[in-house]
Design a protein around this nucleic acid. Sequence first.
DNA 1: GTCTATATCAAGATAGAC
DNA 2: GTCTATCTTGATATAGAC
Lengths: 202, 202
Amino acid sequence: MHPQLTTYLLVSKIICMINKKSQIIELTLKNIKDKGFLSFSYDDLAKELGVTKASIHYHFEKKGDLGIAVCNSIEEGLEKAFSEVKQASIKPLDKPLAFISNRILYINKNDMCPISALQADYNYLPASMQKKIQKLSQMEIDFLTELLFEAKKEGYLEGYHDNLEELAILLIASTKGGLQYKRILGDEFFTKLWEQFTDFLK
Amino acid sequence: MHPQLTTYLLVSKIICMINKKSQIIELTLKNIKDKGFLSFSYDDLAKELGVTKASIHYHFEKKGDLGIAVCNSIEEGLEKAFSEVKQASIKPLDKPLAFISNRILYINKNDMCPISALQADYNYLPASMQKKIQKLSQMEIDFLTELLFEAKKEGYLEGYHDNLEELAILLIASTKGGLQYKRILGDEFFTKLWEQFTDFLK
DNA sequence: GTCTATATCAAGATAGAC
DNA sequence: GTCTATCTTGATATAGAC
């Protein structure tokens, strides 16, 4: 075989592997949002991808490995949303809620926030995942807090002083709770919540 | 055998059955708070009670039956907390948060709110349970809303008008979200949330 | 009412062929 | 990289003896 062909085959194999890996990660994320980490199975993924369980195990030997990969993917999404909103040409006061609604955009009608789903399963996840989930949970708070501080620096949020982290906590906690209730009681629940958010931020 | 003795044995058998049933329900509630409805097993209960799985199946043939029984138990607790707080001799303005803290009292350090746990598993629960969970979710809102209205009637909450249900939704949603974060990030998270609640209600 | 035993099914994971 | 086959374990559930 020509050495060039060998190289080509090797490269395309690696690219395919990367694609398959990220396919699996994406699909896992979807499953987590639907049923949680403990409740989805390698067989669920295999069926949706049209392959066997063993094939998934080739890419992610243990379920925990796949869990870590998904957490990393969530982390990237979080950072991307943060930097996009930070650089957006909108009023600084609108950025905190833009960040939240950016994140919510990817949660479908009957799905959970994936971070909430991971938090729910927390007690029975491997320590490596628990650590990652801690980090993700804190990151969301920190990003939102920073956006609130930037708004404050620009002269908004006069009613608030050193308590912007507290406001971030209120916004995140009620968003997460609200998303859960929305699945059960319908969209109005979240709408009524969001209206109050816009009142806080003016 | 004396007829009296027969009666005695029958009665004590029934009482024992009732006790065993409520024992199972209590233990199930504990398990739901720890791992969620889908993740606990009859074997978990059996081991903790020192009996076999088959024995639990005698009392609750299907897992869904047990789920309904637990939901009913939660509903009773909810109604009890509501009527206790309603009749308590404390300021009407303190009653809404008294209701919430009354409910939180029974959630241990690394546990979830059982309603939140059931909400997380919602998509994969039997329809009978989904209906019950809807009812429980709405009940909490309604009870809290009513306590807020009573406070308003007594002259408190001047800043609020027809939006007391919205306030209830904010309080419930952030409480639920906050309890989840508390398990991951520690008690301070919830403390910082609670401080804001007391600011809202004055 | 509780037990033993068992049926059935699904889950995570691995071995080895192609 | 994917497959078949298999192992092991655990889950829901039922049958029938005591």
